[in-house]
Structures are given as C-alpha cells and as structure tokens.
C-alpha cells in the first residue's frame, strides 16, 4: 500500500529561476525504510519539505504536479493537519527544540493539537521510553549533547504517532557514536512500530544496512530508485560520489579479480558470510 505518492512533482522557490526539484515521481510503501541520498544541493531537503506541506504552505513558490500523503493531497491540507501524519526531524538539533525541559518539548506538538492532559502524559512517557531518554526528562536543551538533542527531536515527533517520519540528515552534526545510536533508534521505530522512515543521509555506507529502498537524487531529479543491492552496480550513481559501503567496494574488487560472490553484500558481516561460502565450496 502506497503511503506517499508523487507524480511529476516540480517546485521552484519564490524568486528562483530554475526548479529545485523537477519531475519527481515516486511511490513509497507503508513500513518501508527509505534512504534518500545525493550530492549537496540536489534538492533532498526541498523534497522533504514537500512531504509535510512546508512546501507550498510555509514556503510559497511554484509547485506543480501531484503529491498525496496518506490519502491527503498536500496542497489541500494545512501543515498542522499533515503534522499528525508526517513528522519532520531537521538537521540542526538545536533549532528545533523550544521548551526549557525535554519533557515539555516532547509534549509541544500534542499540546498544540489540544490533546487532553492525561493522554499527553502517556504519550510523552511512551516516546521518551522508545527513544531511550527517560532519564533526561527534566533537563534543559542546552545541557544536552547534540546526539541527545537529536533524540529529543525524534521523541517529539514520535509522540505525535505519525505514519511517516522524515529525517533530514539527522546525524550530520553528530559524532560517529552519536550517529550510530540515532540510526539504531530510527531502525527500531521502523521495525517495531511499522513507521515509514525516510532518512536523508549522504553517507550511504552508514545507513545502507537498515534500508530496503534507496532513492538517489542529482540536480533536482531522481537518478535511481530501487533496492540497496542494485544501486551499487549503477555507474551513474557512482559518478555522483555518494558514499558506497566498503563491503560493496570489496565485492567489486573481488569481481575484478575474477572472484564472483553470489550477491552484493552491504555489511562486512554479509561479506564475511559470502566469502566463507566460497571458501567452503572450493575445499569440497
């Protein structure tokens, strides 16, 4: 079942002369873990802004084509209405927390929609628990590390119980360990709660082990749309310079040497497994 469907989506920022995204046609199914990638300035953030209606309601400009999210045409619904279905986590963790305590921040969206207090309390506790930050609930945002702040941002979006969670380079301000934790949290939300995840990440090698569906963009257009194993064969994608996983490079190197693995590995664990198979096969 498609949860997001775009047809020939084209958008130009106000005052812009060329479209920042053009002719985007995508189908995203419920429960998928999507990695959206591509070089800087290719329009990833712009596309994310379309998913929850920031474009065209917050940024005016010219939007053409069709975008339907959870059976709602984005053009016809307000951002606040779409916010119940699509949560957006931004790149800079600092500029998306407003309250003076973590708990209050997680409650912000629920308060806005006028949910009864008891229900807010339950949802806040649940979201804090899911993201593993219950111990931070009384803290002020400036007392937290970047990784903790980003987990608060995720919790605040999660508390709205959205169908889709869009995360725009959530780890680009974080150290590798913090990034790893964020990926684990996102993965868990996707697998346990069946939330559709759209993760924007240009270090594809970090995200690929969680992903079922990769979209690569370049210069405002979709360059590739498919499974993570197919993508790496594409010369076109390699030209854009997206970070290809080490395991895939190994596959390529072995192939050049005349050693064919059964399939393209994404993680080092998978690569080890495939190589072991070959060795065992050779011995017998």
């Amino acid at each position: 079942m498609a949860i997001i469907e775009t047809k020939n989506l084209t958008y130009t920022y106000p005052g812009g002369t060329t479209p920042s995204i053009s002719d985007i046609s995508l189908t995203i199914k419920k429960g998928e873990f999507i990695t959206l990638t591509g070089p800087s300035g290719c329009g990833k953030t712009t596309l994310c802004r379309c998913f929850n209606g920031l474009i065209p309601h917050f940024y005016s400009g010219k939007l053409e084509g069709d975008l339907v999210v959870k059976d709602l045409r984005v053009i016809d619904h307000s951002i606040s209405n779409l916010a119940r279905h699509v949560g957006l986590v931004f790149q800079n963790p600092e500029n998306q927390l407003f309250a003076l305590s973590v708990e209050k921040d997680v409650a912000f969206g629920l308060e806005n929609v006028g949910m009864p207090r008891e229900e807010i309390r339950k949802r806040v506790d649940w979201a804090l628990q899911m993201t593993g930050i219950e111990n931070l609930r009384e803290r002020a945002p400036h007392e937290l590390s970047g990784g903790q702040q980003q987990r608060v941002a995720i919790a605040s979006v999660l508390a709205m119980q959205p169908d889709v969670m869009v995360l725009d380079e959530p780890t680009s301000f974080l150290d590798p360990l913090g990034a790893e934790k964020i990926f684990d949290v996102i993965n868990e939300l996707n697998k346990k709660l069946d939330i559709t995840v759209i993760l924007v990440e240009h270090r594809l090698d970090l995200a690929s082990k969680y992903t079922d569906h990769v979209i690569v963009m370049d210069k405002g257009k979709v360059l590739f749309d498919g499974g993570p194993r197919e993508i790496f064969a594409s010369e076109e994608v390699r030209m854009t310079g997206v970070g290809i996983p080490k395991a895939v490079m190994l596959y390529q190197a072995l192939k050049d040497e005349g050693i064919h693995l059964k399939e393209v590995p994404i993680t080092s664990k998978e690569a080890t497994q495939l190589i072991r198979e070959i060795i065992i096969h050779d011995r017998s």
Binding site: F58, F90, N95, Q96, N112, V157
Partner: peptide
C-alpha cells in the same frame, strides 16, 4: 537564520492547530 529554522520546526509540530491548546502541566 535560526529563527527561520525555528519557525519551520514549529509549523512541523502543528503550531496553531487547535484554538484550545492544552498543557502538559497544570
């Protein structure tokens, strides 16, 4: 720049969705 990002984040979290806003604390 920061205030623009904040406004964007507020909108994305249903700012102004309901006239009767509630509160976690009382």
């Amino acid at each position: 720049r920061r205030s623009l990002q904040l406004a964007e984040a507020m909108e994305s979290r249903a700012w102004g969705a309901s006239k009767k806003r509630t509160n976690l604390y009382i």
